[in-house]
Design a protein around this nucleic acid. Structure first.
Lengths: 115, 115
DNA sequence: GGGATCGTCAACCATCTGGTTGAATATGCT
DNA sequence: AGCATATTCAACCAGATGGTTGACGATCCC
């Protein structure tokens, strides 16, 4: 029942390769959310979002806890550690720059609106 | 002719999601390589490796320059910057730890041998 | 010129991915 | 009990992905 595998680089990178899933992770930065609420801003079906959440969960990037009929989704940023360390082995990237991060988030969201 | 698009998070993460491609990047850390030499340690066809290299190139993670009949592949670690910054927005991961990186490389290579 | 080497192209194939819809399950509310 | 809400399941579909093989165009070398 507990999330089985070691979240491999394969599954983490693959999970992060989809813009919908990255947007979900960004939403979860602010707070834990129910599946329905996660789905709300997207134009796709609830079932599709549910699948995305399953993928994020099996990559270890989120955990889901059912309380009552609501399943709460919680960001697990530590799951990115391995991938982050791996990438940083390729170059000393600029010291963690939150401004740049927010700019990226902004660009991503804007792209989805335009689509 | 020049690599067209802005290497998006989509293409970078997708490129990194494949273990063969990550192994290729790790090889290129040591030195630039010809396509044939890149393909050598793998058990798949040269054409398959050529495709992987194309994917890496269109994600901006490598560049390829043809000199004579040999096409040289060069690592372009800066293409990871965006992805790295994006991930670091989710948590302050341990200050660049090369030991951990080499451990990861080791694990990845070992996995391929066993397969 | 002619043969070997380097690399890509084209066609093909099996499998994965991301989405849909409709039905099913589980919980909460009155 | 009976209805509404929350979420998943199952079947299906189109298109992407990762691999193969065989032919092809370039380039180097004798």
């Amino acid at each position: 029942m507990a999330p089985r595998v070691k979240p491999s680089l394969d599954t983490v990178f693959a999970a992060l390769a989809d813009p919908t899933r990255r947007a979900i992770l960004a939403m979860l930065l602010e707070d834990d959310m129910a599946v329905t609420d996660v789905a709300d801003p997207f134009e796709m079906s609830l079932a599709a979002i549910s699948k995305h959440l399953t993928i994020l969960a099996s990559a270890g990037l989120i955990t889901q806890e059912k309380r009552g009929r609501v399943k709460w989704c919680k960001l697990e940023p530590d799951a990115m550690k391995g991938a982050s360390v791996w990438m940083q082995g390729f170059g000393q990237f600029e010291p963690v720059n939150l401004d740049a991060f927010e700019r990226f988030l902004g660009v991503e969201l804007r792209m989805e609106e335009e689509e």
